[in-house]
Amino acid sequence: MSDAALAASGPRGAAAPERDGARRGLGAPPLWLLGFVLPVAVALLWEAAVRLGVAQGRLVPPPSRVGATLGALWTSGDLQVHAAATLWRVAVGFGLGAAAGLALGALSGASRLSRALLDPTLQALRSIPSIAWVPLFILWLGIFEASKVALIAVGVFFPVYLGVAGAILSVDRKLVEVGRAFRLSALATLRRILVPAILPETVTALRSGLGLGFMFVVAAEFMGASEGLGYLLVDGQQMGKPDAILAAILCFAVLGKACDALLVAATRPLLRCQDVARDRL
């Protein structure tokens, strides 16, 4: 080992091989861990600031208090009730909205006639901010579940509709022609060429639909609910409990991410060839 290297390694200079090991150790953990550094550091700093009395932490509770609130909500069983209510609404709303989006999107993508018939109306409806439907939905469907589910379904519908219709319109005609050259029946063309061709974009559309579903469940629960994570938010605001609000926000983050991951995992077997493309490009 040269003197320069010794000098450079400073007080711990005796351990040059160790340093190499450490460098390799730093390279070993996956890069995604890096994403945790910022939020964890901010949380720790805030915790320390409140503990040391630098900040009061009344309006912005430290992580420990949010954790305690979460724990209390969990042991009382409230959290499960609220989360289940929210998940149920998202599930039903997403199911209805996605089904309608897939059906109408397929129709509008596949036939020029139905496209000319449907698309202008749907595009016009799309430009209405979905929240604007709330008063009408409440009048029509009441203030209970139906109006909430309807709002979520409307939110989910449009990205799915647009995604599917766009995917069908952008199917490579040259691949469809391969089906023709091999004399595939209409059904076989659908199964072996069209469906696989639109699957990736459809999954993306469903994912953005699901994201919007979570967005609209909050709006729906704001407009009057007795349970659900959105209710927890409103309740926290009215009762002056920022820790409960943050706990609900955390739950939304976890649930949203988990549902998205579930959707991705469920559709992964259908998109095997995509993986290759992603790895290679």
């Binding site: 040259k174 691949l175 022609e177 391969v178 050259a181 072996r192 060429i193 696989p196 061709a197 699957l199 095997r272 060839c273 493309a277």
Partner: peptide, 13 residues
């Protein structure tokens, strides 16, 4: 049978 100018393979098979 026909072979096109481009391979036109189906990426999902």
């Amino acid at each position: 049978g026909i072979v096109f100018q481009e391979p036109r393979l189906l990426p999902w098979y």
